[in-house]
Simulated scan of single mutants.
Amino acid sequence: LERWGLGWEELSAVNPRLVLARVTGFGQFGPYAHRPGFGTLAEAMSGFAAVTGEPDGPPTLPPFGLADSIAALATAYAVMTALSGRERTGRGQVVDLAIIEPILTVLGPQPLWYDQLGYVQPRTGNRSRNNAPRNTYRTSDGHWVAVSTSAQSVAERVMRLVGRPELIEEPWFAAGTTRAEHADELDEAVGHWIARRTREEAVSAFEKAEAAIAPVQDVRDVLEDPQYRALDTVTEVDDPELGPLRMQNVLFRLSETPGSIRWAGRPHGADTEEILTELGLSPSRIAALRAEGAL
């Protein structure tokens, strides 16, 4: 923007209520501000990759834009905060968001742990340092399921279901952190029971026992999943170029002002002139910018 004379100062002078979001890899200042940055670098720098993967394996990056996606949600929240502030002050402002920051925030209290206890979270694969059993287990028909026992009552139900109720009486079973110290024994009990059943049998039995389980699904399973269908999580949208297509729906449901998807994606530049006009640029200025190759 600044290269073509559309810096914040010029725009805010024309429209002082303007809210401008600036999302870059490292933010607008600091020693890395000039560097090119992508979500992959944020996943590495934030500590995410360091705690992801098997204990004896390499740090693992996600196979999709995780940091970018988290940054997008954080940016939407930041813009709404700025708009709310504008209602009180009558003035807009610049939102400066670095992609390296939101993913660090959602990683939890790791900075606090290190600051106060000198603790560095290690890679634990699918296991947790806070509870056990917690892992993925293979079923007899070659599928995988995930089990979590974050609640003590659920952990006890799982042990009764898999035929190992005696483990509940062990002193270490009374807390998630001490159960995690016996993850090998608990994984063997749960894994052996699940390995002798199909995915459908295992999920059904866990559901009846009110224990927490979920199938490990790929996108094909997601599109057929009855819960996602009931929520309309993946909805159908009519696109003028592609016709009906399926895509993720609005992220949440509001009872009084529900959201909806108006289009799958506008053609490139479809709204440029309208937006620049709203910002206060004259038709001649817009025409000049087009002639200069800025638009």
Rank of each mutant, 00 (worst) to 15 (best):
G5L: 15
G7V: 14
W8V: 08
R17W: 00
L20D: 05
F26V: 02
F26I: 01
F29E: 03
F29T: 10
A33R: 14
R35Y: 15
P36Q: 10
G39F: 11
A44V: 12
G47N: 08
G47I: 10
F48D: 02
P55R: 02
G57I: 06
L61A: 13
L66K: 02
A67Y: 04
A72F: 08
Y77I: 14
T81E: 00
L83F: 14
S84Q: 15
G92Y: 03
Q93E: 12
V94Q: 07
D96W: 07
P102W: 13
T105H: 14
L117F: 07
G118H: 08
Y119M: 10
Y119W: 12
R123I: 01
G125T: 07
N130V: 13
N131G: 00
N135S: 13
N135E: 12
N135T: 08
T136I: 12
T139K: 04
H143R: 14
A146P: 04
S150D: 00
A151W: 10
V154Q: 06
E156V: 11
R160P: 03
E166C: 01
E166H: 05
E169F: 05
A175W: 02
A180R: 00
D184G: 07
D184T: 13
L186W: 04
G191R: 03
G191P: 09
G191T: 07
R197H: 15
E200L: 08
E200D: 13
E201D: 06
A205R: 07
F206M: 05
K208N: 05
E210P: 00
E210C: 09
A211N: 02
I213N: 00
I213K: 00
Q217M: 15
D218E: 13
Y228P: 06
D232H: 14
D238R: 14
P240R: 09
E241R: 10
F252W: 14
T257L: 10
P258L: 02
P258H: 03
G259Q: 09
G259F: 05
R262D: 09
A264C: 06
P267W: 02
H268P: 07
G269H: 03
E273C: 03
E273N: 09
G280A: 09
L281A: 01
P283V: 05
R285L: 11
I286S: 04
A287V: 06
A291V: 10
G293T: 08
L295G: 00
